[in-house]
Design a protein around this nucleic acid. Structure first.
Length: 108
DNA sequence: AGCCTGACAGATA
DNA sequence: GTATCTGCCAGGC
């Protein structure tokens, strides 16, 4: 059999591309799933979501949200702590980031 | 092959 | 503002 490989090594190329983008999102800013697919000119929002579900723990996953500025229920608590820590504009009532203020377009 | 599921999104009512 | 439907497409069964 092949020798032991790390979790990232068995990730498909699309997953690597997604993770590379997520790592570049600046602190206190976010991208949506669709933004990442569009930025890569590859895949769909749903595929980005699948990539994050499987491998997202290796990157700043809380900086990737859906088009409503939210993450799944299970992750909202931990994400909120990160938003508070890094100063991301966040609406605790709605449990969502304020996309109009912190959406990153991919430019530095 | 078909069917279902999913960290989604836009249109519509 | 919420609810529902449809399109999307890879992956698992």
């Amino acid at each position: 059999m092949t020798e032991s490989i790390g979790p990232a090594a068995e990730a498909p190329e699309f997953v690597r591309l997604v993770l590379d983008v997520v790592r570049r999102i600046p602190q206190a800013q976010v991208m949506t799933y669709g933004d990442i697919a569009e930025f890569l000119e590859r895949g769909t929002a749903r595929q980005v979501g699948a990539a994050m579900a499987g491998y997202g723990s290796a990157v700043p996953w809380w900086r990737v949200v859906n088009a409503s500025g939210q993450l799944p229920e299970q992750l909202r608590g931990r994400a909120a702590a990160e938003y508070f820590a890094e100063g991301t504009p966040y609406d605790p009532e709605r449990e969502r980031v304020r996309l109009a203020r912190c959406r990153w377009d991919g430019s530095a």
